[in-house]
């Protein structure tokens, strides 16, 4: 778990996207956390079971384990009397839905069906020529499905297909920020490239600063 900025006051809890995209946006997330610290806002990048340095094999994890990991990290902060704000990137917005948050800020959130479609396409890309994955590509097996080096339980994929990000209708403060190239509904659009698509992890200091300013201002309007 990485911690940035002051040890009191509101804290931004950053949730990275699932699987490969987590590696691709980690540098961006850390740059956002450092920029928040310069603005006097504390932040936290919690470890999630089955990902990063976790000792639990990914294939033994479900979405519930990921969201419990996030929720547990937030409980500890709340016990210290800090107000907690979710900052999620991409499919990270599917993982902070059970946490006790005062508000949720989302960068380019996507629903589980869309994540699953992307995973199927990656799996298809690695399949032998002539092999076409059908609609039930993960449904007729109990064995983990290997996608780009990640071994994923079929049950996780089934669960993923039903997950949707938290919305304002679910309660609390919600703010959605998207890249200018993304036509989905958003509260604000910002210039920048989708680093979560890059095969080689990259960062974007200008984008990180812009996003951190947006997050810090939003936390203030939420009363944090």
């Amino acid at each position: 778990m990485l911690r940035f900025g002051p040890a009191s006051g509101p804290v931004a809890v950053v949730t990275l996207p699932l699987f490969e995209e987590a590696n691709r946006v980690r540098a961006l997330a850390v740059a956002i956390c450092r920029a928040l610290a310069r603005r006097g806002v504390g932040s936290l990048l919690p470890d999630v079971p089955g990902q990063g340095e976790s000792l639990v094999p990914l294939e033994q994890c479900g979405i519930g384990d990921f969201s419990d990991g996030i929720a547990d990290a937030i409980k500890l902060e709340r016990a210290d009397g800090r107000r907690c704000y979710g900052v999620s990137i991409r499919s990270g917005a599917l993982l902070d839905t059970t946490a006790a948050l005062d508000g949720r800020w989302q960068l380019a959130p996507q629903d589980g069906a869309s994540v699953l479609r992307g995973l199927k396409r990656i799996k298809q890309a690695a399949a032998r020529a002539g092999t076409v994955l059908g609609d039930r590509w993960y449904l007729d097996t109990d064995a983990p499905i290997e996608i780009a080096g990640n071994r994923i339980a079929p049950g996780l994929l089934t669960d993923l297909s039903r997950r949707i990000p938290w919305t304002a209708a679910d309660g609390g403060f919600v703010r959605t920020v998207r890249l200018a190239t993304d036509p989905m509904p958003a509260d604000r659009r910002v210039p920048g490239a989708p680093l979560w698509r890059r095969a080689e992890p990259d960062s974007d200091p200008a984008l990180a600063t812009l996003l951190a300013d947006d997050i810090a201002d939003w936390i203030t309007t939420c009363g944090g």
């Binding site: 396409r121 890309a125 076409v132 036509p183």
Partner: peptide
């Protein structure tokens, strides 16, 4: 082939189209 997967998905999102595998 991995980059192709990301490229097609991003083109789908930006143009609002659906590409069958």
């Amino acid at each position: 082939s991995m980059a192709v997967a990301g490229l097609l998905t991003e083109i789908e999102e930006r143009l609002g189209i659906l590409i069958e595998d």
